[in-house]
């Protein structure tokens, strides 16, 4: 269990990033579901989303990998040849690029003057994979937007019910339901449609 191939070694050393994100994910999930305060729920949501962002970022990382800007003179080869300690386990991206049928993932920066060219595996092996990071820019934007909407909703709920405790909101809703009587439309004459009345006002 504690040895080189042991479970603990695998979890804490080789797959450390996964452990971190799973723990964060669960914390977030717990807060979202179990917390009573709406703001705390949103904090949970933020943690939850961040956990996933961390996961993505971590799979794009290569130990010692450099920023993926291809400069012909600055050949990263050789400098970092010795560090591939756990090619299979720790660095899934590596496996990725070997497995992919296409020669490589994208390197848009590269095609500036001489048109697009796929780099060989040799050339790319020491660049960190930029794509997960780029994806996460989008995910962060989405997260911020979600949080913004959710905060606006919380504000609206607070204005309507005077509380941001879920229990209290639910109680208020129940009280509201109990007090509303189904409008006895069939006994009274319904109002004229408001669009017409508003038109009349305008005129």
């Amino acid at each position: 269990m504690f040895g080189e191939d042991g479970l603990l070694n695998e979890l804490l050393v080789e797959r450390f990033n996964y452990c971190v994100y799973v723990v964060l994910l669960l914390i977030g999930l717990y807060a979202m579901i179990a917390k009573n305060n709406l703001i705390k729920k949103l904090i949970g949501m933020s943690i939850f989303q961040t956990a996933i962002i961390l996961f993505y970022v971590s799979i794009g990382v290569k130990e010692g990998g450099t920023i993926p800007i291809y400069v012909a003179e600055h050949d990263p080869h050789g400098h970092h040849a010795e560090h591939q300690a756990h090619p299979e386990e720790a660095n899934a991206t590596e496996e990725t690029e070997e497995n992919a049928t296409t020669a490589t993932t994208l390197h848009e920066e590269d095609h500036g003057h001489h048109g697009p060219r796929s780099l060989t595996d040799e050339e790319t092996s020491d660049y960190a994979n930029p794509l997960p990071h780029v994806l996460m820019l989008t995910a962060i934007v989405v997260g911020v937007a979600t949080l913004g909407v959710a905060l606006a909703l919380t504000q609206r709920i607070y204005r309507a019910y005077g509380t941001i405790e879920e229990d209290a909101v639910l109680a208020a809703i129940l009280a509201e339901d109990a007090s509303t009587v189904i409008p006895d439309v069939l006994a009274t004459k319904p109002k004229r449609t408001s669009s017409k009345s508003r038109k009349a006002k305008k005129a």
Binding site: I59, T93, E97, N99, T102, L131, P132
Partner: peptide
């Protein structure tokens, strides 16, 4: 994320 990890696309 996992899919990308394994397939690279």
């Amino acid at each position: 994320g996992y899919v990308y990890m394994k397939t690279g696309t």
